[in-house]
Amino acid sequence: MKKRYIDDDVRGQRSEHPDKIGEFNRKMILSFTKAAADKYHQLTSSQKAFIDRELDDLKFNQNSTINKKVNAELDQAIVFERNDHEIIVTDIIAQPTRDSQEYRRAQIRMDRQNH
C-alpha cells in the first residue's frame, strides 16, 4: 500500500468529543493514503465539515461491517478499511465544487459584497 498519513498530518490536531470522554479508544488510529490526503486538502470548508464529522465518528463506531460512509444529499463519501487498531481512509469522494460554475459565481458575488 502507498505511504499512509496519520490523522494529525492531514487534519491537524482534533478535539475529542466532549460528550464521549471515556468511550474513546486511544488505540484506534486514523490514517490516510496519499490519494485520500490530497483529496481532503482539496475540499472546501463546507465539504470538510461533513467529512470531519464522519471521520471523528469512525473512531467511536465499532461496527466493523461498514467500509463506506455516504452523504447522498451532499454527494460525498468516505471509503475506508478497518483492522484491529487502525482505520485507513483510502478515498474521499466529493464533487469538485471549486471547479463548478456556481462556485465561481458565488466567489464573484462575495467579492462584490465585500468591496
Rank of each mutant, 00 (worst) to 15 (best):
S64A: 15
D56G: 09
K39G: 01
R105P: 00
S46F: 10
D52A: 08
A94T: 06
E54V: 06
T90D: 08
K69G: 00
Q95K: 07
V79K: 11
T65V: 10
K39Y: 04
D56R: 06
D91R: 08
E54N: 07
Q107D: 02
K69P: 00
T65A: 12
N61I: 11
E73Q: 07
I108F: 01
P96G: 04
D52S: 13
A49S: 03
N83R: 09
H85Y: 05
D99A: 10
Q107W: 01
A35T: 13
F80I: 07
L58R: 07
Q76N: 15
P96Q: 09
D91L: 12
V70S: 04
Q76A: 11
I87A: 13
S64N: 06
L58V: 10
S100K: 15
K68Y: 00
A35N: 07
T44P: 02
Q101W: 10
V70R: 12
Q101T: 07
L55C: 15
D56L: 08
A77R: 04
D99W: 09
V79M: 05
R98V: 03
N71V: 09
R105N: 15
Q107K: 03
N67I: 06
K39T: 01
D91T: 04
S45K: 08
V70K: 02
F80L: 04
E54Q: 15
D38K: 15
K69L: 14
Q101N: 13
I87W: 03
D84T: 06
A35L: 10
I66A: 14
A77H: 08
V70E: 10
E102G: 13
A37F: 09
I88P: 00
R104H: 12
Q76F: 14
I108W: 02
T44K: 03
L55E: 03
Q47S: 10
I78E: 06
I66Y: 05
T44F: 07
S45W: 04
A72R: 14
K48S: 05
T97Y: 14
D91H: 07
T65N: 04
R82W: 10
K69F: 11
S46W: 03
T90N: 13
A36I: 08
V89C: 08
P96A: 09
A106V: 00
K69I: 13
D99T: 11
N63R: 07
H85A: 05
I51Y: 08
D84N: 12
N63P: 00
Q62E: 02
F80H: 11
